[in-house]
Design a protein around this nucleic acid. Structure first.
Lengths: 202, 202
DNA sequence: TCGAAACGTTAGATGCTCTAACATTGTTAG
DNA sequence: CTAACAATGTTAGAGCATCTAACGTTTCGA
């Protein structure tokens, strides 16, 4: 067994999978200290390598953050899939579950969520991952209306819903909700908003 | 006339109103380069003082940002008041105007908006300014329902609306809307969401 | 008017990002 | 098998940022 933990000092000159270790360290630090609080040096300490090592794998500090954002976006898609499983496709239940999954990811990974949605100046990969994620919403709304393709009506409705859960995510992670227990009440709030925002009208 | 511009070098030893000048410089830089891109040194260069000068007025870099956030919060309240003027108090028009003002401030001052709503670990002043701002929303909803005091129903409705405009603000400043022209279409989106979210039901 | 308080400056300690030059290991062509 | 080369690590250091310490200048009140 090779020593690949991020916490213990290495015995070998080559790490083995430093890129992955650095992304993990970066993510952990972003959660602990936020995007600005994060430092490349700290990540190096966590991974047990010198401060110059990351530059073999990332062009700069920002690229490290971008890699975390990319990971997070994919993970969020997975979480949304999981939360949606078992619900009738296109049903209000399924749509609300999609929204709930979104907010749940945000509150469970506030630093990463904020990072993933900050304006990374035109990272094509990240944009693409975001679209894959959003595609789930579009598709559910499409099925809800029984449309065969993504129409303007579908797009408009999806945007209203996304806007709501996105706002709820930020208010939650910034501590602006005065819910006694966010965890318990959030799904009901999402459900209410979904039902009210989602009408045929367009 | 004393030299108080932020761009020109001073002739006098004492600046006159350095605190104000630094807040202005900080705000400008936050808009230009974002919260992380901002540096105290840059602000000093703009204000024409040495890099040690700010520490007579602010405990640290973060306190400078907090001062900007505080200013912004007050300014946002003003903008919301202005946008609401002329509408019947408690009317859907007034409420939608309140929301539109919120989003307009965010898109006009993205860096500052993001800063103002980031989680500044328990700044009482900032929290208080936020509550003053939110009070406007609560009051309009209260009047909308003809209630004499802020009831749970009012609070719940206000929260739904705030959530929506907050989400719309972030999606807008992060370039996640595919509106052809945000400026033109945003008020209609806010109007639609307001009408759908705002129902007696609770 | 004179001493203290307020407010600025320079110098420097410390830490961060990133690059250059060099060291070690893995890989592959002959 | 082995010598080159590619990949991936290291150390040293340039350059810039935050913040503190010690000190200079101006304002203001007793």
């Amino acid at each position: 067994m090779s020593t690949r933990e991020t916490s213990r000092p290495r015995e070998q000159y080559h790490h083995g999978d430093l890129r992955t270790a650095l992304v993990a360290a970066t993510r952990q630090l972003v959660e602990e200290k936020g995007q600005d609080g994060f430092s490349v040096s700290d990540a190096c300490r966590l991974a047990g390598v010198s401060t110059a090592a990351p530059y073999r794998h990332f062009s700069d500090r920002n690229a490290m953050l971008e890699a975390v954002a990319l990971d997070a976006m994919a993970e969020m898609a997975d979480q949304m899939d999981a939360d949606m499983a078992g619900h009738e496709p296109g049903s209000p239940d399924a749509i609300a579950a999609l929204g709930t999954g979104y907010v749940r990811f945000a509150t469970a990974n506030p630093g990463t969520f904020r990072l993933a949605f900050a304006a990374h100046d035109d990272s094509e990969k990240l944009e693409e991952a975001g679209h894959r994620c959003y595609g789930r919403v579009l598709d559910q709304i499409r099925m809800h209306f029984g449309d065969s393709e993504i129409t303007d009506r579908v797009r408009h409705q999806a945007f209203l819903l996304w806007t709501f859960v996105h706002g709820l995510s930020f208010l939650s992670i910034d501590g602006k909700t005065d819910f006694a227990n966010m965890q318990d009440q959030m799904p009901q709030v999402v459900r209410t908003a979904t039902e009210r925002l989602l009408v045929k009208g367009g």
